[in-house]
Design a protein around this nucleic acid. Structure first.
Length: 856
RNA sequence: GCCGAGAUGGCGGAAUUGGCAGACGCGCCGGUCUCAAAAACCGGUAUUGGAAACAAUGUGAGGGUUCGAGUCCCUCUCUCGGCACCA
């Protein structure tokens, strides 16, 4: 047949015309407004959201991955008949803009808006099914004014409040540093030793929602369990007791928090945080103590820095009296590893049952008294503290109790003495939203000497960030607002007198905590959101990096609940949480490491797209790894994907030619000449539908990398089938027509299977082969049960003692007896069985396996 | 340090959740076409032994449960993410 040769020529040596194909497909979508989401449209709503990007200037592979995954899910849902909303916007405030200003003399606003234009063009080139009418940028006052309004109202309700907090202070640059700007305890630019400094800040009372944030995690069945665990641990609810230990020779006492009141008799010391009032008091009188506290103050503020530092303490000379044995006096240390924010900023140490306390005790020559015993006997503690359960020993009235019971008994006894109260503590701290920075949303608070601090009047909102400040090379912009009189001078909303605006701006996590709601009400200009948010929310599928597993996702959940409680959503279960399903995608690596400028191993998506087209870029990134796993970059892999798309392109032509040839033959001679088609048709169709069934299963569980695999496999099967058709005629005209129909059916399935991943080429082929309409709205293919059921036989693996000895082909529903009989006939099986003792047991899994268990 | 992940051929990964390990792709080897090369197409490809049939071994390391373990349990190593001011 001449056909086989024609295919070989195909599109000789080159790629399919991807540039034309892609711009034409995008043009068609644009003309049709194909992805504009309407509230009233038919079909179940599906809100698919990818985490919006920070406009850093250039798209990187992480973005490509994130948005391709989101797009594939969106397009799949569209094909299932859903009414899909997929929006895009810009997380446009933040530190990099200020750094760029310092380096390049360019204003953050200008830099940011230019970056947005460039990145928007790059994103559009990817062919995302996004409703661009809803685009937003958080640095626009039309966006941030609404969060100012909410913050102002929360301030009046006490859910936003002021207190001091510790920050990293760079004494050389006279500026506050982010944790990432502190390298080995020194400022990244100045190299000066950083200091801890207390500054007044605004906080959001997220702890008021701790219980709900924790409890509602149980309802998030669409989230990865690892993220739920991380959030639970982050909130860190623990039940314990606040215990007062009287200080010897003084009237007052030290308050400590413990989750292990059962170990009270094992306490041999106390420790307070360097920020604790007792530490300050001691430092006043004792210069060495003052020195120690000052040394602690040189530590960076991150928890990581505190936890990894060498544990040191300084004896204040104060002694706490043991509440059950006044003869025991516990030395009180100031220690660098005690967190001021947690509990009461003070602990008692029980070295026998806490590893950190044990190390501290050993270093300071303190007693170690075991009070919880695994077997009830006395014992000496070695290198490891005993953290598990046990029976109380050396513990007065608690002796002999299970330690769980002793927890409660100890607190009961202390409560009677008025020395303790039960308390539930959270590791979660209130959210400090103040930043001493310029490029952020101004905090809508006014300071009046007479009236104090108050929220800015609502009629004065938004408090617009002045974009007139001058950027200067090498000069931090962080103090720009505090230096801008025209910004901070204002009238007090209460007394009308001269007042001063707050000059700190907000944490950028605030903007990203509600953008998903704004996408639904993007052009609402009289409120944060309108009723459309109630239609679209919650987000049905959220896609983004695991690095956001705790902070962003927790803040967004909190903010959503605040908005609900402010009346923006009904108090119904549906609106309890903002994100129903969550997919955390992995990073893009190259040469085993993160792609980054400093490593010099970046691959520019732009270049990739120009060279191979957006579909190849999308295909590679989907195919190379499952979405949640790290993806290893491979240039060869990219070429393989490009090759596959070129093959797909010519296969369309091939199949329609083959189909025509078959039908022409039927017309010419009525066919039925040489009937060597036994089962080809059925087995080809079965393979296509089996593969489809697996692909559908994988699509539903978001194993997106398996979809291209399935499509490749199908295309291989189709080409095999096409070659078989070319080799011979058919037994009847009906068979021939069925074969022609299968070529059509199979390729239609391949195209629809691939359309969410590589939409442009599928759109072009769909049109070219005359399937009708647009593939973006074609129905997702369904596996035909009839085709799947046709197989009459099953291959059963035969094992002896778990080792494979062969395989038998039996009728589809064959029972154990039949299979066993057939299996025992196999030479390898009988040989093995005869060398062993009698068969003790036969394990039979119908259609899969039979295992003879025999003695040796 | 604490919390959360991950480790499967030369490489990326698959394995319908305890039932034939290595689907699909890359790379490599051989072939077709070509003066030649590239491209394209066809075939092979876990390791070891063997001409082959076949056998043994094999999913980061070490133990365990099971008729049967990549999958479940325990211990360990390494890599990655987060740790509250990067986003």
């Amino acid at each position: 047949m001449q056909f086989a040769r024609r295919r070989r020529r195909g599109i000789i040596g080159g790629m399919y015309p991807f540039a034309e194909v892609e711009s034409r497909a995008q043009e068609r979508w644009r003309e049709r407004g194909a992805f504009a989401a309407e509230e009233k449209a038919a079909g179940e709503k599906f809100y698919c959201l990818s985490m919006f990007p920070y406009p850093s200037g250039r798209l990187h592979m992480g973005h490509v991955r994130n948005y391709t995954i989101g797009d594939m899910i969106s397009r799949h849902r569209r094909m299932l008949g859903c009414n899909v909303l997929q929006p895009m916007g810009w997380d446009a405030f933040g530190l990099p803009a200020e750094n760029a200003a310092m380096e390049n003399n360019v204003h953050p606003a200008e830099w940011t808006r230019n970056n947005i234009s460039e990145m928007r063009a790059q994103l559009m080139r990817l062919g995302l099914a996004v409703d661009w009418r809803r685009e937003l940028a958080t640095c626009d006052s039309s966006y941030y004014r609404w969060e100012q309004l909410l913050i102002a109202r929360l301030f009046s309700r006490g859910l936003v409040y002021k207190k001091t907090a510790v920050v990293n202070w760079d004494p050389a640059d006279k500026t506050v540093l982010a944790n990432e700007q502190v390298v080995d305890g020194k400022g990244w630019r100045s190299g000066a030793d950083i200091e801890r400094r207390s500054v007044p800040m605004y906080f959001m009372k997220i702890t008021a929602y701790a219980e709900e944030l924790l409890a509602d995690l149980d309802s998030l069945s669409g989230w990865p369990s690892s993220v739920l665990t991380m959030q639970r641990n982050w909130i860190g609810r623990s039940e314990g007791a606040r215990i007062k230990l009287p200080l010897a020779g003084r009237g007052d006492s030290l308050e400590v928090f413990t989750t292990r009141p059962d170990t009270i008799f094992g306490a041999t010391f106390c420790a307070v945080a360097p920020e604790h009032p007792l530490a300050a008091e001691c430092a006043k009188k004792d210069s060495r103590a003052a020195q120690f506290v000052a040394d602690c103050g040189r530590l960076a503020v991150s928890e990581e820095a505190i936890k990894t530092v060498e544990k040191k303490g300084y004896d204040t000379g104060l002694r706490a009296v043991h509440p059950f044995d006044s003869s025991r006096l516990l030395p009180v240390y100031v220690a660098n590893f005690i967190l001021a924010q947690y509990g009461s900023g003070a602990i008692y140490g029980c070295p026998a049952h806490d590893q950190r306390d044990l190390e501290f005790a050993r270093a300071n020559g303190l007693d170690v008294v075991a009070v919880v015993s695994p077997d009830g006997k006395n014992y000496e503690v070695g290198e490891k503290a005993h953290l598990g359960a046990g029976v109380m020993i050396n513990s007065g009235f608690l002796n002999g109790m299970e330690n769980e019971k002793a927890k409660s008994a100890a607190v009961d006894a202390l409560e009677k003495k008025g020395l303790a109260s039960r308390e539930t503590q959270y590791r979660l701290r209130d959210w400090g939203i103040s930043r001493q920075r310029y490029w952020g949303c101004p905090i809508p608070v006014v300071h009046c000497e007479k009236c104090g601090d108050m929220a800015a009047a609502e009629k004065d909102l938004p408090v617009t960030l002045p974009e007139t400040v001058r950027a200067e090379a090498g000069k931090p912009l962080s103090a720009a607002l505090a230096a801008d009189e025209s910004f901070f001078r204002c009238a007090c909303p209460k007394c009308g007198g001269a007042a001063r605006r707050e000059t700190d701006t907000m944490d950028t996590f605030v903007e990203s905590s509600w953008y998903f709601a704004r996408f639904a009400s993007h052009d609402c200009n009289d409120a944060m959101v309108d009723s459309r948010a109630r239609e679209w929310m919650p987000v049905d599928q959220y896609v983004g990096g695991v690095e956001h597993a705790v902070l962003h996702l927790l803040y967004a959940r909190f903010f959503h609940k605040l908005m609900r409680d402010a009346g923006m959503y009904p108090k119904e279960a549906r609106y309890a949480e903002p994100f129903s399903r969550l997919l955390c995608q992995g990073m893009v690596l190259k040469d085993g490491g993160k792609m980054s400028k400093s490593r010099g191993n970046t691959v520019d998506p732009q270049e990739l797209i120009e060279r191979y087209g957006a579909d190849t870029a999308r295909l590679f990134i989907l195919f190379a790894a499952p979405p949640e796993q790290a993806l290893e970059w491979s240039d060869e892999g990219v070429r393989g994907c490009s090759r596959f798309l070129s093959r797909l392109w010519s296969a369309g032509e091939e199949f329609s030619q083959m189909r025509k040839t078959i039908l022409d033959d039927v017309r010419a001679d009525g066919n039925g000449n040489n009937g060597n088609d036994d089962g080809i048709l059925e087995s080809a169709r079965r393979e296509i539908h089996q593969t489809l069934a697996k692909a559908d299963y994988d699509m539903n569980r978001l194993r997106l990398n398996n979809i291209p695999s399935a499509a490749m496999k199908m295309l291989n099967a189709m080409q095999e089938f096409s070659a078989q058709c070319a080799r011979g005629g058919f037994a009847s005209a009906e068979k021939a027509k069925a074969a022609a129909a299968l070529l059509d059916e199979g390729f239609g399935i391949v195209l629809r299977l691939l359309a969410p991943a590589v939409p442009h080429i599928c759109e072009a082929l769909w049109e070219k082969l005359g399937f009708g309409g647009t593939v973006a709205d074609a129905p997702w293919p369904r596996a035909d049960e009839f085709a799947l059921a046709q197989k009459q036989t099953a291959d059963v693996v035969v094992q002896v003692n778990g080792k494979k000895r062969g395989q038998v082909t039996v009728a589809a529903g064959a029972d154990e007896q039949t299979v066993r009989a057939a299996a025992e006939e196999l030479p390898a099986v009988s040989r093995d069985l005869s060398s062993r003792a009698a068969v003790r047991k036969v394990i039979f899994v119908p259609g899969r396996i039979i295992n003879f268990v025999a003695g040796d």
